[in-house]
């Protein structure tokens, strides 16, 4: 083994931990900005001195009861939606697939809305209902694709159709139950205003388990991405693994939707950004980057949403589109050095 090869191997192996560390730093910075910024600016030194002093100050109350739950919610939802998007894109072999585009979010949203309308007191069951809805939608799209032997583009088109149908059913339910679903407009556009730590339970457990499972099976996802015949000839039970990954994706998207509403775009854009950062489509590397970038991205978007026109607040979903779309287009146009991660 020559020196050049050893150097190349070290360089290659060290690059991912460095990238992970940078992305983790980015997540910490976004969390810190989220804690400090708001209608009232609380500087880190001010907060630190309040923490060291006795009693609960006004600033501490704001951070503890308002900003921290929101930040925790955006970190969880951003990470969950990003990983869900990466899983769906890899399993369906389609870079355009994402939870909001192929109807997974809409399925989760529909079951959430139905749960609120029919069982208004069963708040704790919302994540389970959202998971069931997301799973229903993703299996419906996958079933259509499987039945018709559909191409990659047809899968997306089928997903768009399913998504439209499910959104229409959501609108029907909200029309029939207007009183119990008064906050539905903010749910549909997505947002975490007024969220409490209690309302994140048990969704955070589902998200934690889902992300851990996705990271553990990253290698299998890479093999699955080689194509059905190759994966099968390498000994993989493709049907079981596909179902497993789609179930994990549905669980993540469902859990996120149950408390953050139908936040779109994160599941599409963050996996692509992560692949650009990793400069490859290896899921073992892309998934952990997705966790960090997804959390940081949604946290920053929420901070902008609540500070840009303070004391008025923009819906989170709108800010996600305003920030995410231009950045995404810039990344696509930049296309430095070929087709990395396409």
């Amino acid at each position: 083994m020559n020196t050049l090869r050893i150097f190349s191997m070290i360089k290659n192996k060290s690059s991912l931990p460095v990238k992970l560390a940078i992305c983790f730093g980015g997540l910490l910075v976004s969390v810190l900005i989220g804690i400090c910024a708001g209608t009232v600016w609380i500087s880190p030194t001010e907060l630190l001195s309040d923490l060291l002093a006795e009693g609960l100050s006004q600033n501490e109350r704001i951070v503890l009861y308002i900003r921290l739950p929101r930040i925790l919610a955006t970190v969880l939802a951003g990470s969950a939606l990003a990983v869900s998007g990466a899983l769906i894109q890899a399993v369906l072999g389609n870079p355009l697939a994402a939870p909001n585009i192929i109807g997974v979010n809409a399925g989760a949203g529909l079951f959430t809305v139905l749960c609120i309308a029919v069982f208004p007191t069963a708040v704790k069951f919302l994540p389970a209902a959202a998971f069931a809805g997301a799973l229903f939608a993703v299996l419906l799209v996958y079933g259509i694709a499987k039945k018709t032997g559909a191409s990659r583009m047809t899968i997306v088109l089928a997903g768009v159709g399913v998504s439209s149908l499910l959104n229409a059913v959501i609108d029907t339910v909200t029309t029939l139950y207007p009183d119990s679903l008064s906050g539905i407009s903010s749910f549909k556009v997505g947002g975490v205003a007024g969220i409490t730590l209690d309302s994140l339970f048990p969704a955070w457990i589902l998200i934690g388990v889902g992300i851990l499972a996705a990271l553990c099976f990253g290698h299998d996802l890479d093999v699955l991405s080689l194509g059905e015949n190759t994966a099968r000839s390498l000994g993989m039970n493709v049907s079981v693994m596909r179902f497993l990954f789609l179930a994990i994706a549905a669980m993540l998207a469902g859990a996120a939707v149950s408390f953050s509403g139908l936040v779109g775009f994160v599941g599409l854009v963050v996996p692509h950004i992560s692949r650009k950062i990793v400069k490859s489509a290896e899921n073992t590397a892309v998934l952990p980057i997705c966790v960090l970038i997804g959390g940081a991205f949604l946290t920053l978007c929420d901070t902008v949403a609540r500070t840009l026109f303070a004391p008025f607040e923009l819906p989170l979903g709108i800010v996600v589109s305003y920030i995410g779309v231009p950045f995404f287009i810039w990344l696509l146009l930049r296309k430095r050095g070929g087709k990395h991660g396409d």
Binding site: D222, L226, E282
Partner: peptide, 22 residues
């Protein structure tokens, strides 16, 4: 089994070859 030319995800040669040990 090596099928006819397939679309391959954009990974390194070493990673692809490593999958042979799956």
């Amino acid at each position: 089994y090596l099928g006819q030319s397939q679309s391959t995800s954009n990974i390194t040669v070493e990673s692809l070859v490593s999958h042979g040990r799956f």
